[in-house]
């Protein structure tokens, strides 16, 4: 088990290194472009050369990469071109905001979709199952930007219940959190629900559940003790991978609600070609994604005794 965890972490580090090389290749392979992006299109040739000289861009590629990697590892991501401050100064607060949004979303979505999924899968083909399935398929079909528009139209413009933007500029406001989280929940819960349902329905038809029923166990015990544990192994992985999806979702939602989060920052950086900020954001995003995948893999093996003890 320990070896397995070690292997997974090793693979995670390897992935990060490969991603960093790719990013570096993509963004910094030609120093001339970097200088143009940093100093702007109206800078003179001379200015750019001076800047490149000062920032060590005439060194060979691999030397630059390792220097960059070293800075990166020590938390020095360079300065943002657009915000004119060190990247770290804007990155961490933004990441914090997104974490709040993500946690709020997960705190509602996971219990909701697990309960719905298990209820639907427990009695496959029942009315409850059919209604849950239809609702979840419809909500997954509405993209986040569309549901953001529709929900805003109803809750903000018609009913005047909630603020339409969530900039959090005057400090944290729980009301401003509701809309973005709601949009993310509506889009994502259907998927997790359907996965849970499929897994539960499958487990309910297995022979060992039949064995449990024919042993004369109470239905509650059959479901809680025999079915649930096996049925939740697959959704666990799905849920962990949702974090990866959520990272995509927050970009749209934060952009729409002008929420000062990590997703909006990444988008802004890309649109403005703010290269150090892009690098930092992309590395952070990939790190979060790879780390959750690692946890998912390790957790999966832990939940599944067939793998744990082989």
């Amino acid at each position: 088990m320990l070896i397995f965890v070690g292997k997974r972490i090793g693979f995670m580090i390897l992935t990060m290194v490969v991603v960093s090389i790719l990013l570096f290749l993509l963004l910094e392979i030609t120093p001339g472009n970097v200088a143009t992006k940093v100093l702007g299109p109206y800078s003179s040739e001379e200015q750019r050369n001076l800047w490149l000289e000062a920032h060590g861009y005439f060194e060979p590629f691999y030397v630059r990469y390792f220097a960059w990697l070293g800075n990166f590892a020590s938390g020095d991501f360079g300065d943002s071109v657009r915000f004119k401050v060190p990247v770290a100064d804007i990155l961490w607060p933004r990441l914090g905001n997104t974490a709040i949004l993500g946690i709020a979303t997960f705190a509602v979505m996971i219990p909701l979709s697990l309960i719905l999924g298990v209820l639907a899968g427990m009695r496959e083909g029942s009315k409850l199952d059919r209604s849950i399935s239809i609702v979840s398929i419809v909500t997954t079909s509405v993209p986040e930007f569309a549901s953001a528009v529709l929900i805003t139209a109803v809750l903000v413009f018609w009913l005047h219940l909630l603020p339409g933007t969530s900039t959090m500029s005057d400090g944290f406001d729980i009301l401003q959190l509701i809309l973005p989280a709601l949009v993310l929940i509506i889009y994502d819960f259907g998927y997790v629900t359907r996965m849970t349902r499929a897994s539960m329905a499958e487990v309910m038809t297995t022979q060992y559940v039949r064995t449990a029923i024919l042993k004369g166990l109470p239905y509650r015990r059959v479901v809680m003790r025999h079915a649930l544990r096996n049925a939740l192994i697959a959704p666990f992985t799905v849920i962990m991978l949702q974090i990866n999806w959520l990272l995509s979702g927050v970009i749209v939602v934060e952009f729409f609600f002008a929420y000062k989060g990590f997703g909006a920052l990444l988008l802004e950086a890309s649109l403005n070609q703010d290269i150090y900020l892009i690098e930092a954001c992309a590395m952070v995003a990939v790190f979060v994604a790879v780390a959750t995948q690692t946890i998912a893999d390790v957790g999966y093996t832990y939940l599944n005794p067939r793998i744990r003890f082989s």
């Binding site: 022979q207 060992y208 024919l214 004369g216 166990l217 003790r225 025999h226 096996n230 005794p305 067939r306």
Partner: peptide, 29 residues
């Protein structure tokens, strides 16, 4: 079921719950 009429199945591997110990599966009866 299970106390007056009990059953033995064709595929023992499938009939036993993969994620519960033998103990749990026996003593609950």
């Amino acid at each position: 079921r299970g106390s007056e009429i009990a059953m033995v199945y064709q595929e023992p591997m499938a009939a036993l719950n993969p994620s519960l110990k033998i103990e749990t599966q026996l003593i609950e009866v």
